[in-house]
Amino acid sequence: MLYSVKEGFAGLFRARLSTMVTISIITLSLLVNGVFLIFTINSKKVVDSIQDRIELEVFIDNSYDVVKTDQLRERIFSIQGIKNIKYISKDQAAEIFRQQFDQDIFEILNENPLPSSFQISLLREYRTSTYAESIIEKLKALDGVDDVVFRQDILVTFEKYMNIAYIVIMSVGGLLLLGSIFLVSNTIKLTILARLELINIMKLVGATKSLIRRPFVVEGLFQGIIGSSLAILILYGILKIVNIEVNNLIIINDEIYLILMVLGVFLGLSGSFLAIQRFIKY
């Protein structure tokens, strides 16, 4: 084991040029993957903010007084999936009307016809059309609820696009990763070709397949770590600059750096493992 580590480490310096090429390829692959990941995370934030706006409006029986309205609120809260309930009084409804139409409702009618209502937001995991439907059913069955308004069509369309987007993102991500593995493994293959003599001598003196492979995989691991460190540094730098130029344009979770490191290690390991495979056959 110690031998493999030493040998793998020495390998980095023996073939300096191909080591640098391999590391650059890993760094590049990770940068592409990283940018893709940031793009995905940021679109998710946009999606979440749209989903936050998905609300139900529950209109309250005109005859309900403050006490009864309060009791109704309690009953609504006991339904599963409710996150938040905001009360809109008749006066507030009239004010909202005035803001939207630039006209006072009292100018049209003598009295305020707008009912008081609850604006209800749902817990995140209940924001699907199926859950929303069952919650609406339960709301409608309550005494004191006149009507429930909900833009279901928006949610359904939104869900459809989300599913398509999900499939596209997963396939693009998968292809990117496969492409990266292929690219890295082929680059490492060039390194190995330069050291066929070493492999042949190892076979001659009776090294097992796994022992021949190990130093190369260790070398791949080192290259993966160096490659991802570089990618992390570069990405961190770029994001810093962009976010200073344009105030916090891009949202970054720090986990992305961890993901890149794991990805780099994975690329180095799998790339070298695949690359050496053909050459260690007896």
Binding site: A10, N200, K203, L204, V205, G206, A207, T208, K209, K281
Partner: peptide, 24 residues
């Protein structure tokens, strides 16, 4: 079996005209 070949080679010493040394 192919996987026994390393065990066989460990029982043999082999030298060639071109030495086959590692110059690194």
């Amino acid at each position: 079996k192919k996987r026994y070949i390393p065990l066989l080679r460990r029982k043999l010493g082999i030298i060639f005209q071109d030495f086959k040394l590692l110059y690194d």
